[in-house]
Simulated scan of single mutants.
Amino acid sequence: MNWETIFGIANLWALLGWVILAFAPKREIAVPFVFFAGSVLLACLYAGLIIPLMAGLISDGGPAGRPPADFTSLSGVMALFDSPGGATIGWIHYLAFDLFVGIWIARNADAHNISRWLQVPTLFFTLMAGPIGLLLYLLLRQFVGEKPEYALLPS
């Protein structure tokens, strides 16, 4: 399995979703496309790779003799990421979830009349450093646009 190719395609696909999300003039048309063709497709790719990898049906391309990959210990998680396959699958996990959070931010910001120009920086930080972008958006929502009753809670 060519993990480098899978990594590159997933990266470009997610980036296309982010560009559409940030700059599409008609978000009500773009968001469902980005959700299904972006987050859902990446989630399917993730599932299609992690399940056979954890079942031992495909190789992660990592070095022999290392501890077995698992999610129950730090050494097991480190072993998972210590391979091209594990790192690629982990990265796809981040891509799918960060894009999902970006979709929520964009839709929520639109619903609360927050300018697209103010949304773009939070979307950028969500793409680059997921939780920081989410935190920035939640803080932005405290001060800009139509403030919901509980601005720090998802709505």
Rank of each mutant, 00 (worst) to 15 (best):
R107S: 14
K147Y: 06
L152I: 05
F23K: 08
G102W: 02
Y150D: 15
R141Y: 09
G76H: 13
W18D: 01
L135F: 14
I29W: 15
I132Y: 01
V19S: 09
A96V: 14
F35N: 15
K26A: 12
D70W: 04
N113V: 11
L140F: 03
L138C: 04
A24C: 10
R27P: 08
I105W: 02
V144H: 05
A87M: 09
Y94E: 01
A111Q: 07
G102K: 02
A43E: 12
I9H: 00
P154G: 06
G38T: 09
T88I: 01
G85L: 04
L57Q: 15
P154I: 07
S75Q: 14
S75R: 10
T122L: 05
F125I: 00
I20S: 09
D98N: 08
M54P: 07
P148T: 00
L95M: 12
F7R: 03
G130A: 01
V77C: 08
I29E: 14
G130P: 06
G76N: 14
L134E: 07
S83M: 05
R141C: 13
I6G: 01
C44Y: 10
Y150F: 15
I58Q: 03
P63I: 10
P84T: 02
L139G: 10
F143I: 09
A79S: 15
L153Q: 12
F71P: 04
V120D: 02
G102Y: 01
A79M: 11
L15I: 14
L49F: 08
I51E: 11
L123S: 00
I29V: 13
D70I: 12
V40I: 15
F33W: 15
P67G: 08
L41C: 12
A111G: 10
A79Y: 09
G61H: 03
V34K: 12
G90T: 05
F125D: 00
A109D: 03
G130D: 03
N11S: 13
M128D: 02
L74N: 04
G102A: 08
M1G: 08
F97N: 06
G62M: 12
W3Q: 06
D82W: 03
I58D: 01
R107M: 15
I20N: 06
G145R: 12
I58K: 06
M1R: 08
G8Q: 03
